[in-house]
Amino acid sequence: MRELIYYVAVSLDGYIAGPEGQFDAFLVEGDHLAGINAEFGDTIPTDIAAHLGIDQSGGRFSTVLMGAATHAVGLPDMPSPYRHLEQVVFTHRELEPAENLTTTDANPVEVVRELKQRGEGSGGGRDGGTGDIWLCGGADLASQLHGEIDRLVLKRQPFLFGSGIPLFAPGDYAPVRFDHVRTRDFDSGVALTEYVRRP
């Protein structure tokens, strides 16, 4: 079955963006870029990857999920930021039509369960929807989907925001246990840490 993977950059104090939604403090230079992009190149916006010469044809993901605020980060320049993937934006607002992008106000849990049933998570982002599912953000969507997240891949950034948008919005649910899979440390201070949901 396909996995839902919450892959996101996060500060040491647990924020994925600052108080106004800003994320410009995240390090965009350093040895972590090449290491992370080699493994997760399919999480780079399509046009940026093309500009950098990054091949996205054999990536891990075939679908990306976003809340409206996460999708809005690229507007108006990138209405379809990850058009090499199937993009699903959860919103009650009407958005302009964009290539390979679907909007829905359906229950995120039901949508994810349907997506997971499509096929086995064997990678290959352009293979017709059978690669894994990338939860791009944001905090409210992650909180709603906490019970469906199979894996966390956190790009821990070496600074504190102090306040802002948390990794998960506050929710009324029991503790969920994840087991550490690996951590890869970079000289830049960024660490890529992966956890898998305990059965």
Results as ranks from 00 to 15, higher is better:
residue 32 H to N: 10
residue 37 N to K: 08
residue 190 V to Y: 05
residue 189 G to K: 05
residue 119 G to E: 14
residue 139 A to H: 05
residue 45 P to Y: 09
residue 161 F to G: 05
residue 72 A to P: 05
residue 14 G to W: 04
residue 190 V to K: 01
residue 2 R to N: 06
residue 191 A to S: 14
residue 41 G to M: 06
residue 30 G to W: 00
residue 126 R to F: 12
residue 187 D to I: 06
residue 42 D to I: 02
residue 24 D to N: 11
residue 89 V to R: 09
residue 75 L to N: 05
residue 70 T to S: 12
residue 97 P to E: 03
residue 83 R to G: 02
residue 126 R to I: 14
residue 65 L to W: 00
residue 181 V to A: 12
residue 44 I to H: 09
residue 106 A to K: 13
residue 88 V to P: 00
residue 177 R to D: 13
residue 184 R to T: 15
residue 114 E to C: 10
residue 188 S to L: 03
residue 151 R to A: 12
residue 171 G to R: 12
residue 66 M to C: 07
residue 118 R to V: 04
residue 110 E to F: 08
residue 193 T to K: 07
residue 175 P to C: 10
residue 18 G to E: 01
residue 65 L to C: 03
residue 106 A to E: 15
residue 129 G to K: 08
residue 67 G to I: 14
residue 141 L to R: 02
residue 149 I to D: 06
residue 152 L to N: 03
residue 117 Q to N: 15
residue 58 G to L: 07
residue 124 G to K: 05
residue 8 V to C: 11
residue 110 E to C: 06
residue 12 L to F: 09
residue 49 A to Q: 07
residue 195 Y to V: 03
residue 45 P to W: 13
residue 163 S to T: 12
residue 175 P to W: 08
residue 80 S to G: 15
residue 22 Q to G: 14
residue 134 W to C: 00
residue 135 L to Q: 04
residue 122 S to Y: 11
residue 165 I to G: 03
residue 138 G to P: 00
residue 36 I to V: 15
residue 186 F to L: 09
residue 144 Q to V: 07
residue 4 L to A: 01
residue 155 K to A: 09
residue 169 A to H: 05
residue 137 G to F: 02
residue 32 H to K: 07
residue 115 L to M: 06
residue 138 G to I: 02
residue 64 V to E: 03
residue 79 P to A: 09
residue 147 G to I: 04
residue 15 Y to Q: 06
residue 140 D to M: 07
residue 143 S to W: 10
residue 159 F to L: 12
residue 86 E to D: 12
residue 56 Q to A: 08
residue 24 D to R: 02
residue 63 T to Q: 03
residue 146 H to T: 11
residue 122 S to C: 13
residue 65 L to F: 01
residue 32 H to R: 08
residue 53 G to Q: 13
residue 12 L to K: 09
residue 3 E to M: 10
residue 170 P to S: 10
residue 18 G to N: 04
residue 21 G to A: 11
residue 66 M to H: 04
residue 176 V to I: 15
residue 148 E to G: 04
residue 191 A to L: 05
residue 102 T to Q: 13
residue 63 T to W: 00
residue 120 E to T: 15
residue 96 E to I: 05
residue 122 S to Q: 14
residue 135 L to R: 04
residue 95 L to S: 04
residue 198 R to G: 13
residue 167 L to Y: 07
residue 16 I to Y: 05
residue 74 G to Y: 01
residue 115 L to N: 00
residue 71 H to A: 14
residue 199 P to V: 10
residue 48 I to V: 15
residue 158 P to K: 03
residue 132 D to P: 05
residue 154 L to W: 00
residue 1 M to Q: 14
residue 78 M to T: 12
residue 131 G to R: 02
residue 180 H to S: 10
residue 35 G to A: 08
residue 179 D to P: 05
residue 32 H to W: 06
residue 142 A to F: 00
residue 16 I to N: 04
residue 85 L to C: 08
residue 81 P to V: 01
residue 7 Y to G: 04
residue 181 V to D: 08
residue 16 I to A: 07
residue 148 E to Q: 11
residue 94 E to F: 03
residue 143 S to R: 11
residue 67 G to V: 11
residue 82 Y to F: 15
residue 159 F to I: 08
residue 167 L to P: 01
residue 111 V to P: 01
residue 177 R to H: 10
